[in-house]
């Protein structure tokens, strides 16, 4: 009986004592896998460093050039030049998130806690399918369908809520405004936020949900008590992932927006701020020399914005770690 209990790996011949002879062949798998995992971890750092180095080296002519030279060639000083684009990037992304997050959380919650199981699964598939639509298609849809269709809404907003600075100004004749771009961006970031939130909501501990229900919580109160607090870090992570996508999205914005270089919070006019990614895409084909450097340096700014956004997200998630659902 006791012999049967020896593990098959160690039953061959005499068992090697600790530190003697060749290591157990079974451990080789361990070492290989550890090496592979570590290599993958290092690889991602190397790629990131290379991208940063590329941006820095290729962009530096524009960053460190004599301002007089830049101005004489008609490019303008770098920081004043890039600032409106940086603003446009962040502004469009924030607008997109304001539109997308409530809807995404709502859909995720419906799938995880409200819908009958027969409906939940197809709905999940549809959401994932939305993520598979290429951004060019979203761009076409935004400029050809959404923009003209949204124009009456914009006119109504301007006429009735024009006293709010966001909706002031003359309404764009084409409907191709930053608001339209934000709606398109929102549609694009919706699937990723939704599916991440759904996963987190589904993982909310059954035990805590039952605790809330047993105290006499309604379904919504149960969600507030036992699901949201647990899912909070996950929701933030999902939002940040969506924000990352919205910040970097190029094609849809390029196609919807005929942006200019200005800083304005007005959503409905034809004078719209452009984003960094769209500016690079629009100008890169004809750029050479210093102009190329300038665009690459703009890419560096985008890179930094994304980095800062992610660091803020990390900080928010870790701030109340003691109260998190992890303990």
């Amino acid at each position: 009986m006791t012999q049967k209990l020896t593990r098959p790996g160690t039953s061959r011949g005499a068992e090697p004592g600790p530190g003697t002879g060749a290591p157990d062949p079974k451990r080789r798998g361990d070492r290989v896998f550890r090496g592979f995992a570590m290599g993958a971890g290092i690889l991602i750092l190397v790629i990131l460093a290379l991208v940063a180095a590329f941006l820095l080296i290729q962009g530096s002519p524009a960053l460190f050039a004599d301002p007089a030279k830049l101005i004489s060639q008609g490019y303008g000083e770098f920081l004043p030049w890039v600032l409106p684009y940086a603003f446009g990037t962040v502004w469009a992304a924030i607008l997109a998130l304001v539109l997308a997050v409530p809807v995404a959380v709502g859909i995720a919650l419906f799938i995880s806690h409200y819908s009958p199981r027969r409906l939940a699964q197809p709905l999940g598939y549809v959401i994932d399918l939305l993520a598979a639509v290429p951004s060019v298609v979203f761009g076409l849809w935004g400029s050809l369908v959404l923009a003209p269709a949204a124009r009456p809404l914009y006119e109504w907003l301007s006429a009735n809520l024009g006293f709010i600075p966001l909706f002031s100004g003359t309404v764009s004749g084409t409907g191709r405004t930053i608001f339209t771009a934000a709606i398109v961006l929102a549609t694009m970031v919706l699937p990723i936020i939704t599916s991440m939130c759904r996963e987190v909501f589904l993982q909310a501990p059954r035990l805590h949900e039952e605790a809330a229900l047993a105290l006499g919580a309604t379904r919504w109160e149960m969600v507030k008590m036992a699901v949201f607090p647990f899912a909070r870090p996950g929701i933030i992570a999902a939002v940040m992932l969506g924000l990352g996508r919205a910040l970097g999205e190029t094609m849809a914005v390029t196609m919807v927006l005929s942006g200019t270089r200005n800083i304005t919070f007005e959503l409905l006019t034809s004078e719209n701020p452009n984003t960094i990614a769209a500016t690079v895409a629009q100008n890169f084909p004809e750029a050479f020399g210093l102009k190329t450097s300038q665009l690459i340096a703009a890419g560096l700014v985008l890179f930094l914005i994304t980095l800062v956004v992610n660091m803020i997200a990390r900080w928010i998630v870790s701030r109340r770690a003691e109260f998190s659902g992890a303990n």
Binding site: P205, A212, A214, P229, R232, F323, N327
Partner: peptide, 12 residues
């Protein structure tokens, strides 16, 4: 009221 098998205080 109900008390469960494993303690389930709200962790947050």
């Amino acid at each position: 009221g109900m008390v469960f098998q494993r303690p389930n205080p709200f962790p947050t």
